[in-house]
Amino acid sequence: MKKVNLFYSVCQYIPSLIRQESINFGIVVHCPESEYSEFYRTKNFNRIKHFDDEFDIDYLNMMAESLDYTFSIDRLHEDEFQDASLFNDIRDSSFIDERTKFYANEFRFLPTQHLSTTQEELCQDIEELKQTFLYYDQPKGERISTQEVRKLLSKQYKIVKLNKYISKTTFKDFADEPVFDFCYNDTVIKALSFDYVRGRDLIKQTKILSQDIIDNIEYLKGKMVQIVVDNEVNTNEETIVKSINKFYSISKKYNIDIEVVPLAEYSNMLISNGLK
């Protein structure tokens, strides 16, 4: 199968330039060989409303429309007023960079990333990027499993070219299964589905992982335990709060470092900072 290039950049909304806190607003994707580009905006404005005290839906809709106009080539077929010359460089690998370099205040783009794919797998790769960075747009009943979180996490390591520094952990639980999914230096990583809709499953996974951590506490002393989850951690959802508190109570009791971080935030950090 013939290889094609897929470039993407995550758009972040930063309402306060003083606090510098950000939230993913969308993602732009570009395939030069297919002469395709698209801006996918978040549909979950309720999450932005909770994030931004001065939430202005009219302003955000205007910005979403502007970004769509700038990046989405399909608008050429839908909008008779769209300037076709805006996409003269659609086959250039610098297409995204040439547009995102002008955004520096409330809306900023993370460095452009690249992956090699095929025409047959292009749509699936784009969907997986949306799952990773716009996870909260998915209906709660369609959120992803622990296995899918692990798969997306592994793919992000590969995309940002950090997979050569990542290895599989060697110690296992009583069922001879790996306790953690990945490790590097003094950090071990566990992918976990934090879907409170499947509350009983979340409680079960939390109990198993908690016991695995306790059983291997001597090995984990001096290490960082990162639990990468598919949901927000700043939430009032009772099951998620209980799970997070369980992990942090173990951290405090046994004096080990445990961090629970959402997949989208973790992937943003990989792009911006690499492996800490």
Rank of each mutant, 00 (worst) to 15 (best):
K43A: 07
E142V: 04
D92L: 15
E265A: 07
D79L: 15
F71K: 04
S249C: 06
D52P: 05
T42Y: 02
T170K: 12
N88I: 15
I159V: 15
R198N: 15
A191T: 02
Y8W: 12
E35T: 03
L17N: 14
L60R: 09
T100N: 12
F45H: 07
R143I: 03
L122M: 13
S249R: 02
P15T: 05
E218R: 07
Y135F: 11
G274K: 11
F109G: 03
S243N: 05
S243R: 05
R19I: 07
P139I: 15
R143L: 09
R47H: 12
Y266D: 13
D68L: 01
V179L: 06
Y254N: 10
S251G: 00
K164R: 13
D68P: 00
T70F: 03
T170S: 09
N44T: 09
N268I: 13
D186V: 13
F182A: 07
K155R: 13
L86W: 12
L162T: 11
E232I: 08
Q124Y: 14
D230I: 01
E35H: 08
R200W: 03
T206R: 03
M62Q: 14
Y219S: 02
I48C: 03
L60H: 12
I250V: 13
E33I: 07
I208G: 05
D215R: 05
L115K: 11
I214A: 08
E35A: 06
I90N: 03
L162Q: 14
C11Q: 01
R99P: 00
K253A: 06
F194N: 08
I73C: 01
S72F: 01
Q119D: 10
K49R: 14
L153I: 11
D176C: 10
E120S: 05
M224T: 15
P15Y: 06
S37C: 04
S22T: 09
K155E: 14
E128H: 05
D176Y: 05
V4G: 13
K252Y: 11
V241H: 00
D83W: 08
K161G: 06
S243H: 04
S16H: 00
T206E: 02
E80I: 15
Y103C: 06
T239P: 00
D89E: 10
V229A: 04
S94Y: 14
G199R: 07
K164T: 14
S16W: 00
M269P: 00
I159L: 02
G199N: 13
T132M: 03
V261F: 07
A191P: 02
D215S: 08
R99Y: 01
K207P: 01
C183W: 01
R91E: 15
V225C: 02
Q147D: 15
D52H: 01
E177T: 12
R41Y: 06
R41E: 09
K49Y: 03
L162I: 10
L162W: 07
N236C: 02
V233Q: 06
F45G: 00
R91P: 04
F7A: 12
N245M: 14
R198I: 01
S243L: 00
V261Q: 09
I240L: 09
L86F: 12
S116I: 15
Y136W: 10
R200G: 07
E128R: 09
T206I: 04
C183H: 03
D173Q: 02
E80N: 14
F174T: 15
T169E: 08
N105K: 07
